[in-house]
Each structure stands twice: as C-alpha cells, then as structure tokens.
C-alpha cells in the first residue's frame, strides 16, 4: 500500500505547478494512470483525499484516466493492445510479446484551476 505516498507526491507536484503559475487555486488534478504502474486507482483516490487535508488542495478532486497496456507486436509490426495483464500477447494475432510501449504511466497531465 504505497498509494498514500504517491498521493502526497501528486499533491506536492500539483502545488508546485500552481505556485509557479502565480498561486492559482487548484480545483482538480488530472492523472494518467497506466494499468502496469503498480498503483491501484481506488486506493489512490481515497489516499488523495487524505493527502489533501490541511493543504491548499483540500477539497480538490483527482480525475484519473486509466491507460491501457499497449505492446509492440513484431508479427503485426504495430502497436496493439495486450490481450490482458495475465496474458502478454497481441490481442490481434496472439503473438506473445513483452515489449510494453504504454501502460506504466503515472503522469499528472492537467490542473483545473481558478484564478
């Protein structure tokens, strides 16, 4: 359960960005969360609320966009969705591959702010 420390990093990072832009008030933080990031969405959402307490972000929302896993399939010579995280093969042709090209993201991509 490392979601609380991740949530605290998100709060710090968002506040730093807000400060750099002249102290805007953050209403929501938008996050891209890869299914292979090792972070669980629900645990992160409840941790986020805790992490925001007694900070300028108290009352803000965390908006999580889950990012599916894409692999590079040599057979198809293209990026394809993975069959499942229990079965790393191309969802189109079934070729096994460990070449992950997307799905490990843990990225803050946007802030909803008020001036």
């Amino acid at each position: 359960m490392h979601e609380l420390s991740i949530a605290m990093s998100i709060v710090d990072l968002a506040q730093e960005e807000a400060d750099r832009r002249g102290g805007v008030q953050i209403k929501a933080v938008h996050l891209r969360l890869g299914l292979l990031s090792g972070v669980v969405k629900d645990a992160l959402l409840s941790s986020y609320e805790m992490a925001c307490e007694d900070t300028p972000l108290q009352g803000s929302r965390l908006v999580v966009e889950e990012v599916p896993v894409l692999i590079f399939c040599r057979q198809c010579d293209a990026q394809r969705p993975v069959h499942s995280t229990q079965m790393f093969c191309c969802s189109e042709c079934g070729t096994p591959t460990g070449e992950v090209v997307q799905g490990k993201e843990l990225l803050v991509v946007g802030l909803e702010v008020e001036d």
Binding site: G110, E112, V113
Partner: peptide, 17 residues
Amino acid sequence: SPKTRMIEVRQNVLKQN
C-alpha cells in the same frame, strides 16, 4: 463567479525517484 480553466502539465509523479 470565478471561472475554471485547464492548465496542461506533463509531470511524472515518480520524477524524484
């Protein structure tokens, strides 16, 4: 009423690590 606007950022949460 205050207006909400969207700021685009791109920051890895585990950047420090």
